[in-house]
Design a binder for these strands. Sequence first.
DNA 1: GGTGCCGGGGA
DNA 2: TCCCCGGCACC
Length: 532
Amino acid sequence: MYGSKRLAKRSIIGTRVCAPWPDGIYYPGKIRNMENRSVYTICFDDGYTKAFREADIVGQGFRGVGSVHLKFGQKVFITNNGREMVGHVQKHKKPTNEVFIKIADSSETMIQRKLDEVRLMESRKSPRLADHETNYLKLADMSPTSDAKKRNVSSSIDVPSAKSFKVEDEPMMNDVMAAAMVLTSLSGSPLLARMDSTSVPYSPTSPTGGATSDLSMGTASSYSPSSSGHFSWDFHSRGTPSPTSSTSDVECNAPGFSFPEIGSTNGVVFDQLSVDEGIDMSEVGALCTVDDIPAKKLKLAPTRTAYKCTWPGCGKTLCKVQGIEKHIRSQHLRTKDSSYNDHEEEFYYTEIETTVDSMSDMFADMYTSSPPPTLSHMDMVRPPHEDPRDSNGNSGMCLDRVVAQLTPMSSSNVTMFAPLSQVPQQTTFTWQTTHPTTITPLQTNGQQYSSPIRKTSIVQQRQQSHQAASPKTHLHFAPSAGSGSAPSQGHHNHHHPKTREGKKCRKVYGMERKDLWCTQCRWKKACVRFTC
DNA sequence: GGTGCCGGGGA
DNA sequence: TCCCCGGCACC
């Protein structure tokens, strides 16, 4: 019924957004794919890839910066004197939403801005900013010397000087921040960084020290002065991946293999992470408490991540994202020119996750032997940006909606963790696979386990699309939310086979952001982006 | 009244 | 084919 619908042209893939690391600081990245309607895999600029809930993402189509709390050291962009400047947050006063920003190219200039006037990403690419954007080392190499004085004359327009700014008594904070930015950008895994932050007093990924705390907590003073100027933290010494390792290493080490490490460090964390061995939908660092976990889900199953080519008939599975991308480029896209990278290959592989204990050996064969669903139109997928969650991350309603928007068949459980600094939250939902035979063995492992496979957006989107089109679609999960409007019930299929409870572009983006709507919505046609 | 989207029609 | 919009059913 809906299979013949014209497909949207716009793509969210590749959209630059910001997402928080475990230290609570937002960093820019690109949306690589969509895990489901509410979870997006973001590839940070340093190559690290992580899944985030839509509510944790800041950017066009997602939540605005006005709804986030900027932590100390957060890199921001502001317009000052008609110029876009980059700086780092010194303090974000929540009550007034005032943000004090230290301009990156000056150690003295402090800018005060309303939160709404702050951007997490540059609005335009000026050479000056581009330089800052890409050269973190240079950024980190700033020193509060004569250069600062010079700039202080022209750029401190409407702000008190840093010295009069008593919020932070960190003389070397600029350097520290810069260093932190470098490290947070380069470090392999927020997951591990979080682990560090919970187990080590000093976290290289957190400019405020291990506690990822606000400036107001005064943890900045815990920063080691020796860290300024060079960045040689030994990630390996704590069993974490090198921040400067290749992206593939990051991929392989951080999201996949780090779970056991975390488990070994923090039993609670381990439990959390291994629950369902499902998708860590958000900040793994924002770990749930045990209390948040349904007892039935307390099964340990460390996971690892692999990448499976979804090119029809291929199914090659590699453990490194670089490898799979190379494979796709070379084998399928025939793109040899590495300088031309439109990231098309990202459409043709999916990140899969499996438990180390039971699945590591079998899943590759299983998945390589299973032809993937036809490639879906990821570009139909746009994220809802208005998450009904409250600012504390209490996402009960949101999660319910997430659940409701899925078209599950109890094949895979997805574990969602609340983002950092938010109330630990976890939910589990399932989705149906279009290849039940592929999943069946996993399903039989038990409900707690369900599928350990993390199927990312391409496959999943297709699944959802199929289900939306299938009259046999039915829900198997029991959550109260959304269950009352299961597609199999009542009037639902008559005139509006797509439930109104599903987010539609109008609802998600609003009239003022109609440009973000899918084409269908703009044409008042059936939404193809938020199908249910 | 708002929303979703079918159906029709213009470019 | 793209795009717009009237109109209707549903909430």
